[in-house]
């Protein structure tokens, strides 16, 4: 029965070791996928390279379907698995700010770490910027706290909110993803930028 480490009460050290190993896998795959290149990431928003869309959705779907199957087979106790807390306002405002950071800076935190690992100086600067941003958040927290904690609605699951089975929702997400992949690859042809693609 999983999740293995919290369920068996293994030590924190083992948990951290698992974190490290998982991180290696995470970093390796990110780099292999090309997420260490800000121009590849930005390609998503200009249509010349939609790798981000492909990798991101394929990954989310793989894990989603995997969890549904594991749960179905009774191999994982989903009551222990972390489900993100939903604070409506801060999730939306935070997401919008992050989106702006993405298109301006060209990275997100995970990809910037991965890119910094192979020597991208812009990624190192991005990380520096992130640290500053987090520090500013800490400084202004008292002022932001009402927004930060407002409109808390627990940790709802989308399937429960819609009143459908997890599997059906997964199917709907897959259907949308497949459509997006199709449109995305059309866009890749339409907005083709060989000059950029050969450099990244």
């Amino acid at each position: 029965m999983a999740p293995i480490i919290p369920l068996n009460g293994y030590t924190e050290e083992l948990n951290l070791l698992a974190a490290f190993l998982i991180g290696i896998g995470f970093g390796f795959v990110l780099e292999q996928a090309g997420f260490s290149s800000s121009r590849k990431l930005a390609g998503m928003f200009y249509g010349y390279d939609i790798t981000v869309l492909k990798v991101f959705f394929t990954a989310a779907i793989t894990a989603m379907v995997g969890l549904i199957f594991l749960n179905y087979l009774g191999l994982i106790d989903m009551s222990i698995v972390y489900i993100n807390q939903y604070y409506i306002k801060s999730a939306i405002v935070g997401g919008v700010i992050m989106g702006a950071g993405f298109i301006i800076g060209g990275f997100c935190p995970g990809t910037s770490v991965c890119a910094a690992a192979i020597g991208k100086i812009d990624a190192m600067i991005f990380i520096g910027g992130s640290l500053i941003g987090i520090f500013i958040f800490g400084l202004t927290y008292d002022w932001l706290e009402p927004l930060y904690n407002d409109a808390f609605v627990g940790a709802p699951k989308l399937s429960e909110e819609l009143g459908i089975k997890d599997g059906l929702l997964a199917f709907a997400v897959i259907f949308m993803a497949v459509m997006m992949f199709w449109l995305g690859e059309k866009a890749e042809k339409m907005f083709k930028r060989d000059d950029i693609s050969k450099e990244i």
Binding site: F26, S38, F56, N84, Q85, Y87, S90, A91, V93, G94, G95, V96, I97, M98, G99, A100, G101, F102, I103, I104, G105, G106, F107, C108, P109, G110, T111, S112, D122, A123, I125, F126, I127, G128, G129, S130, L131, I132, G133, I134, I136, F137, G138, L144, L147, Y148
Partner: peptide, 20 residues
């Protein structure tokens, strides 16, 4: 990169998590 990073860092705290 610096500005984008700062925005992302700030937003990730407000939004309780980043892209990953």
């Amino acid at each position: 990169a610096l500005i984008g990073g700062a925005l992302f860092g700030f937003g990730s705290q407000l939004g309780r998590g980043c892209t990953s």
